[in-house]
Amino acid sequence: MTEPLLSIRELRVEFPTRRGILTAVDGVSFDIAPGEVLGVVGESGAGKSLTGAAIIGLLDPPGRIAGGEVLLKGQRIDNLPPEGLRRIRGKRIGMVFQDPLTSLNPLFRIGEQLIETIQLHTGMNAAQARDRAIALLVDVGIPAAERRIDAYPYQFSGGMRQRVVLALALAADPELIIADEPTTALDVSVQAQIIALMKRLCREHNVAIMLITHDMGVIAETADRVAVMYAGRIAEIGPVRDVIGRAHHPYTQGLMGSIPTLTATAERLTQIPGSMPRLTDIPTGCAFNPRCPHVFDRCRVERPELLPAERTLAACWLYAADRRATA
């Protein structure tokens, strides 16, 4: 296997609060290969956005990385000084946020924001940067880009603004884009356009994408591999077809069962009983054990590491070597 573009090792993100330290991301590890789309799914509060923010050093204080490593092409970036991280942001790792309506500064023309970013990272002169900005806008599918470049954000629709945001993320030809819920705030028809656009950009620019979302449909459509997060840890990770088609972790199975489909005729959707624990009272052992239909003694005392289960890795004692032997 080629060297991973991004490698996360045992990442821990903590929030010191008055009532003690909350661990929001706890020992998360994964790799992203060059040009690969890794989907990260999970419910609100599972730690997926924080993982993304931690990678590029944009955790809001008092949140902080308390352990682990983030490696970009084998080079550690989590311990860089702020200025070093800033040089990586936008240049080597781009980011796209959820709400395109608020991601752009309302008082500046989109061209000004694009040219600013391009000049900052490439050292082009103003005319070159403007040409590149127009080319980027064409690339993300903004019609009449030469004219629209001088428009203000409020003159664009939500979908068009997300295209501009993508152009901004691509401004300096990054190797990785962290997309945090990029389609959540958009209409379904526009979502499909943005997903198709991201797939095409990923292919043409050979940029890897870490796609954070809670929408399984988006993941199925876009991702090569998917990581399912639960209560700050990865529950299951593997190729997208296997995780969606043959899930192994009981949480993933529950998650898949609770997705409504247009074709299925099931009378009712299955649902996972209970809800994800708060950060203040994560159960000992497997964090999912109070809700798990297959729970047994070991789950309540010992926390499972990622274990091989067919083609995926699942953090579940059902797949421990000794149990598999007996099963």
Partner: peptide, 24 residues
Amino acid sequence: DYVRFARARGIPERRIQFRHALRN
């Protein structure tokens, strides 16, 4: 969000403060 996004684009903090934030 747009200040956060400006940070994500790698804009230096001083520039964010005096160009992007101050005008708003």
